[in-house]
């Protein structure tokens, strides 16, 4: 797996195999990190948006409002 293991040699076979492997791994993880970060931002933005909606319309029941607001907005 890592260049430090005993079997690892800097030859063509290893370069290709681990090159492709780490490319795939990086591709997957960057996408996951992207999704995670984007989701957290969305959640945060969603929270602040909900708060402003609460603040502007003073509704009595905060919970249902949040749902309708969400549906309305998206």
């Amino acid at each position: 797996m890592l260049p430090t293991t005993f079997e690892f040699r800097w030859d063509a076979g290893h370069m290709i195999f681990f090159g492709v492997f780490y490319a795939v791994v990086i591709a997957i993880f960057t996408s996951l990190v992207y999704v995670a970060v984007k989701s957290i931002i969305d959640v945060y933005r969603d929270m602040t948006a909900r708060n402003e909606a609460n603040a502007s319309e003073h509704p009595e029941h905060p919970h249902e409002a949040t749902n309708e607001a969400v549906i309305a907005k998206s």
Binding site: Y44, M47, R50, N51, N54, A55
Partner: peptide
């Protein structure tokens, strides 16, 4: 109310 709400959701997030 507003301050409390913001702080309440932020408090929940925190």
């Amino acid at each position: 109310m507003k301050m409390r709400d913001i702080s309440e959701s932020q408090r929940q997030f925190a």
